[in-house]
Design a protein around this nucleic acid. Structure first.
Length: 278
DNA sequence: CGCCAGGCTTCTA
DNA sequence: TAGAAGCATGGC
């Protein structure tokens, strides 16, 4: 991996396994959108970013090398060798198909709070609407940063009530958002502590929040706490496990099971005919 | 228009 | 303690 400082920003080259579309459009984050010119724009926390793929590599527009190294390099998990991780996955036809189909996708290291709220919103919902609700959440209650809006803090949301959240049009999820905000804001739930706990303790701690069950907790651990052994099982993954990986369980996929999960999720969503028709 | 969405809580047997 | 109903909203 090499970085070059150019007038437009930081150009990242000689990087293996980094595909922007697969990474930003696979249902792990909800704040990035593709522009008409093919570039991507989004916000993580309070940091906006525009980036695009060129013949020479990936351009991170208008940022300093310091910001790249201190934040985006970690966010995009650029120091991990995905090829080596793939070699350690179980020897299975559908594992190989999933890894090949999804190659270039990286599992992001997002903020735990933002991930918690995002996946509370995601339940029994579809991705376009999830993105819309999160956009309204940030526009109405987030801090303005340039032309964008950051993700609102727990303390800001904890002061609101269900009427205030009506503007989100997120239905019954607003009670869950408020419960999470109040507990985190009060220190009753400490996300930094939870991130370091043994994983079963962390799961239990997260599920104390209203509206957080096994699936949402697993997503927070994987996408928001860098716990790569976490393995979210949604309806698609449950089906994939029983039909494509009979006899295997999350643990069978090892230390980086979460990456395997993301590959399999993407593969099976894009190829629903891989399941036996009945 | 009707079905369904990266589930969870609550109710019922 | 397992299984199903109910949940608000809108994308397709």
């Amino acid at each position: 991996m090499q970085t070059k400082i150019l007038p437009q920003g930081i150009l990242l080259s000689e990087i293996k396994d980094f595909d922007l579309k697969k990474t930003l459009d696979c249902g792990q984050c909800f704040r990035f959108y593709q522009n008409n010119d093919g570039s991507w724009h989004g916000v993580a926390g309070n940091r906006p970013l525009t980036l695009y793929q060129t013949n020479d590599g990936i351009m991170f527009k208008n940022i300093t090398k310091e910001e790249f190294n201190a934040f985006w390099r970690i966010y995009f998990d650029l120091d991990r060798d995905y090829e080596a991780i793939c070699r350690a996955f179980p020897d299975s036809v559908y594992m190989r198909k999933s890894a090949r189909f999804s190659s270039g996708m990286r599992v992001l290291r997002q903020d735990a709070w933002e991930t918690l709220i995002s996946f509370i919103i995601s339940q029994n919902n579809n991705i376009p609407r999830i993105k819309g609700i999160i956009d309204r959440l940030c526009r109405n209650f987030g801090q303005q940063c340039g032309g964008d809006f950051g993700f609102p803090s727990p303390t800001v949301l904890a002061e609101l009530d269900e009427q205030d959240l009506g503007i989100l049009r997120c239905g019954w999820r607003s009670a869950y958002i408020l419960d999470a905000a109040r507990r985190v804001s009060a220190g009753e739930i400490n996300l930094k502590e939870i991130a370091k706990m043994p994983i079963d303790d962390a799961r239990k701690a997260l599920q104390k929040i209203k509206g957080v069950g096994p699936k949402v907790a697993e997503c927070v651990l994987l996408y928001g706490m860098g716990r790569y052994e976490a393995f979210p099982l949604d309806v698609w993954m449950k089906r994939a496990m029983s039909e494509l990986f009979p006899g295997l369980e999350p643990k069978s996929f090892g230390e980086y099971a979460g990456i395997a999960q993301q590959y399999i999720f993407h593969f099976s969503r894009c190829n629903p005919d891989c399941f036996t028709k009945c």
